[in-house]
Nucleic acid binder design. Structure first.
Lengths: 232, 232
DNA sequence: CGACGCGATTAAGTATGACGTTTTAGTCAC
DNA sequence: GTGACTAAAACGTCATACTTAATCGCGTCG
């Protein structure tokens, strides 16, 4: 997933998760030359990493003091990398909850907008993926089901015409992927959820914003309920 | 607002807005040594700036090619700085629209959650700021009104107990501030909106989630309507 | 005895030159 | 015309020297 093509990327993908995992409690101080030695890279690389972490508000760098780890409330929790790191760490349940609540707020509104704004092509994509979900919802084809599920939600968010909603596509993908991979999900997807997706596609196709929004709200409720079962 | 305490910060606050303003169309290529000369700083500084811009997905850096400006769809539109830059540039109307739609999706849900989870202290703060809004809603006290308005929405978002909602406090503040400063708002705030805020505070205090959510939806509708008047 | 201030120290910030690495493009041979 | 090989261009990394600002401690003054 993380290609880590450069040295700084490698260091970042090591240090970032460590911070979001709470290995360095807020207020901890890191010194650049210490990190230099720890990762066996030059100062250039460390400084670039620090700058990026700083831009995520994970740390703050002050002269004569060092690089201080910030409190979680300061973090840029919308940064896709921060989300991914937290999903991979001990904060995972809490993060999943936050994201699911966010989804439950955004996706219904997005679906309503999509019903008004979706292009014929997007309607077609939506239907296609909904049917794809139906087709792969039985017989341990979770992997392929997931692809359609993600694509479906992506299209909804994109079709809403709101760039900020569209950008949440990655977040939703992360959540759905996480659900499939990390969680014990031996059983096939809930048939009710599958049906709901089909009906959302229908509502959007028929430009019925109210219904699209209401149905998506149901999907979101389902996701919340599922969360109560699977996350502490 | 931007203190720009370091060289890299200064360069960033010059290059970032230029990119989000579309001065460098997607696909444009910047070379580091060219930037070095343009800003009269060392490679160290330029490289750090590039790394941060890269982390915002504003640009991508490839060997033998240079630093390529990415398409707006790629941008991390949730990064507070990107939001600020876009609000300050020609993309402002579009950005305001996106943010207001986002608010209209999130804030009602946040208010509903706040009604269930707000601490007594937060309830008190809410009431205080609602009353503050009432007190300053007449007689050209926009500046002081704004403070209470921002604080009110911040408390709602924070009281929702969702860290991702809480993080939108800055965004809302940016939008509300922008409305007051950039727009021609000679008239006093809409009395209906003020009343709605008071009633939301009431609903939260009485733990009436449904009502808090519905009332906040009305506030959001108002903001959307106001936008139709003021943004192209 | 306490408060204020000045200097010394420390760690980040900046500059610079050298070298490595990757990717593209151009050329030459077949 | 196609292939491979080479050369150049731009970023990536390293090492080092120097600058700047913040903090700590010591000393002086009130």
């Amino acid at each position: 997933m993380d290609s880590a093509q450069g040295l700084h990327a490698r260091v970042l993908d090591s240090l970032g998760p460590a911070i979001t995992a709470g290995e360095y409690p807020p207020g901890s101080v890191l010194r650049t030359d210490e990190l230099e030695e720890r990762f066996d890279v030059s100062r250039t690389v460390i400084r670039e990493v620090i700058r990026v972490l700083e831009s995520m508000h994970l740390v703050t760098s002050r002269r004569r003091v060092g690089v201080t780890v910030l409190a979680p409330e300061e973090w840029n929790v919308y940064d896709p990398r921060v989300i991914r790191w937290r999903l991979a760490g001990p904060d995972r349940p809490r993060q999943l909850r936050s994201l699911t609540v966010l989804r439950s707020a955004v996706e219904p509104v997005a679906a309503g907008l999509a019903a008004r704004l979706a292009t014929p092509e997007q309607c077609a994509e939506l239907t296609e993926h909904a049917l794809g979900m139906v087709a792969t919802s039985r017989g341990q084809q979770l992997q392929r089901y997931l692809v359609h599920d993600i694509a479906f939600h992506r299209v909804i968010l994109r079709a809403s015409g709101n760039e900020m909603f569209a950008r949440l596509g990655d977040v939703v993908a992360e959540v759905l992927t996480g659900r499939t991979h990390h969680q014990v999900m031996f059983t096939d997807p809930d048939p009710a959820a599958v049906t709901l997706h089909v009906r959302v596609a229908e509502a959007v196709r028929e430009r019925d914003a109210e219904r699209a929004e209401a149905l998506t709200r149901e999907i979101a409720s389902g996701a919340m309920a599922e969360l109560d079962v699977l996350a502490p």
